[in-house]
């Protein structure tokens, strides 16, 4: 299995570079989609907490609660988005690379 020429053929396969760069970019964008809202939320808590204390309509519930729920549910949905594409599209590309480079 650890055939060096197999590795170099994978390396030279343009599909490999394509798959890796797409998947890396996708993972990075999704990480930012989780981390930027989360750290913005933390910054609002540290410096502008009143923004989260505004009430919703007539009652006592504040906007902070639904925002928190959106952070949790949203991050989870993003993991679903990643798994769907990584296990579908990227995995197919991966299999193709491995097959084409195998001689």
């Amino acid at each position: 299995m650890s055939d060096p020429s197999y590795h170099s053929r994978i390396r030279q396969n343009p599909k490999f570079a394509d798959m890796v760069s797409r998947r890396t970019r996708f993972a990075l964008i999704l990480s930012l989609l989780v981390l930027v809202p989360y750290y913005s939320f933390m910054m609002v808590i540290a410096f502008q907490p009143d923004l989260l204390r505004q009430t919703l309509g007539e009652g006592v519930a504040t906007v902070g609660w639904p925002i928190g729920v959106v952070l949790v549910v949203g991050s989870w949905l993003l993991t679903g988005v990643y798994v769907r594409r990584a296990n579908g599209e990227f995995d197919r590309m991966n299999q193709e690379v491995l097959k084409e480079s195998w001689k």
């Binding site: 999704l30 981390l35 990643y82 798994v83």
Partner: peptide, 14 residues
């Protein structure tokens, strides 16, 4: 709770 949660998506992505 939110702070404890957000690590998991990052572990998945990276």
């Amino acid at each position: 709770a939110i702070s404890f949660f957000v690590g998991w998506p990052i572990i998945l992505f990276l």
